[in-house]
């Protein structure tokens, strides 16, 4: 959206709060803490909403696939409309994705948010598995606190 790649030409602009937004751009890796906030932001957005996932980190974990703090695939937690490849996708790729999303919306093809309601248990199960761990993943030794995980406040 800067002077050289002006996205405001298509009427696209950054909004300050999820309430006023239509499209959620998830650019790059998602750590566990961010995932909690992404889910909350996604659920705060009013109904016709779409999600764009940028970069290889949202498809199959990208370069942090073996890290203990980043998820591998965003589509397991919130429904995604378009996934764009590239490790930092180029500005042209970003604008191309935004334009295809606009065409998809006009043709009524983009409706991933309905999918969130239909198989909400699948998404919820994934989210809880990752965010509300109650047992240590690698198990055995040196665990001091046994009490259940703190709930998502």
């Amino acid at each position: 959206m800067t002077s050289r790649w002006d996205v405001e030409r298509f009427g696209i602009g950054p909004m300050a709060t999820p309430r006023q937004a239509d499209v959620l751009l998830v650019t790059g890796y998602v750590s566990l803490k961010t995932l909690k906030r992404i889910i909350r932001t996604y659920e705060q957005m009013p109904e016709p909403k779409w999600v764009l996932a940028f970069g290889s980190c949202t498809v199959n974990g990208g370069i942090y696939w073996d890290s203990y703090n980043t998820i591998t695939n965003l589509a397991e937690y919130i429904p995604v409309d378009i996934t764009v490849s590239g490790c930092m996708p180029r500005p042209e790729a970003v604008m191309d994705a935004l334009q295809t999303l606009m065409k998809m919306i006009q043709s009524g093809e983009a409706g991933a948010y309905k999918k969130y309601k239909e198989n909400y248990e699948y998404y919820k199960a994934n989210q809880d598995r990752v965010l509300r761990k109650t047992y240590p993943i690698l198990g055995e030794k040196l665990i001091q606190n046994e009490e259940a995980a703190t709930s998502i406040e």
């Binding site: 890796y29 906030r37 073996d66 980043t70």
Partner: peptide
């Protein structure tokens, strides 16, 4: 803090 923690130091050891 911690939203951007990707465990670089652990990944680099591997």
């Amino acid at each position: 803090a911690g939203q951007l923690h990707r465990g670089f130091e652990k990944l680099m050891e591997q």
